[in-house]
């Protein structure tokens, strides 16, 4: 493997919950400025993978390094410094329901003490505008927004502190096709133009093709295929073909329990 500088480098990552093995020796690299999309079936451990990288879950074994710094087992101070480079869009939004929208977006800016409240509010407005929300929603609480609007607020919050690496956990699920495309464009703008590295997770192949430079497929706890987005249709792997064409029959058997 070439010694291209990697933003994120994961080796032999393992994570089980009780007897259930979720990640089983996973290797993955993400280059600087790259937009990597991880695809895979429901429940294959995509969210678990992100949470291990973010330090929200402790892996059972393996190594994760960010900008060449090992983060598994790092001290909490080192962890804080690394988390400062991150922005995360949670699958369920995870907006703070006790705070108005603008404070949600400005939370990271206020937490690091970088900005005063007034400046943070202005910055939050700018990020909200970037995701297509007007100033009229700034004072509302998350519970008063539609699901799609919540997603956009969560996106604004993830990018508010201008992170170096952004993690998107299913950015387009639950949105109408047009809104989904708006979000895709936004992600492309953030990653391609601002040079931010992005690790995204999705089942939505249209979205994956649009936002990715590279695609990796997670299956049974391992990355079974990774390559440039242009090669996805000629991967030569039946499991990848089955997934991208959404066929029920093929080597991947969905466990359906009555």
């Amino acid at each position: 493997m070439s010694e291209r500088p990697a933003k994120i480098r994961i080796r032999n990552l393992r994570k089980s919950f009780g007897r259930k093995v979720v990640l089983d020796g996973l290797d993955l690299d993400m280059g600087i400025g790259e937009s990597l999309v991880v695809i895979g079936g429901s429940g294959t451990g995509k969210s678990v993978l992100l949470k291990c990288v973010l330090g929200l879950l402790r892996p059972d074994a393996g190594s994760i390094s960010i900008d060449g710094v090992e983060v598994v087992g790092a001290s909490s101070a080192a962890r804080d410094a690394i988390n400062r480079k991150f922005g995360m869009l949670f699958q369920g939004g995870a907006l703070f329901d006790s705070l108005p929208v603008w404070e949600n977006v400005a939370f990271g800016l206020l937490a690091t003490g970088r900005l005063r409240r007034r400046e943070a509010r202005a910055a939050a407005m700018a990020k909200l505008a970037q995701v297509g929300l007007g100033s009229d929603v700034a004072g509302l609480h998350p519970a008063e927004l539609s699901g799609g609007m919540q997603k956009r607020v969560a996106l604004a919050r993830a990018i508010a502190a201008d992170p170096e690496i952004i993690f998107f956990d299913e950015p387009t699920t639950g949105l109408d096709p047009i809104m989904a495309d708006v979000i895709n464009d936004l992600i492309v703008a953030i990653t391609r133009d601002a040079g931010v590295s992005a690790l995204s997770i999705t089942h939505d192949m249209a979205s994956a093709r649009k936002i990715a430079n590279r695609i990796a497929m997670l299956y049974q706890g391992k990355i079974i295929w990774a390559g440039p987005v242009a090669d996805i249709d000629s991967s030569g792997d039946e499991r990848v073909d089955q997934f991208i064409h959404g066929r029920a029959d093929g080597p991947i058997k969905m466990a359906i329990r009555a």
């Binding site: 922005g87 995360m88 939370f107 990271g108 937490a111």
Partner: peptide, 15 residues
């Protein structure tokens, strides 16, 4: 906050 991942979100927002 725990089950809706808001606690996790705090960690990712330097808190």
């Amino acid at each position: 906050m725990r089950v809706t991942e808001q606690i996790d979100a705090l960690t990712t927002l330097s808190t």
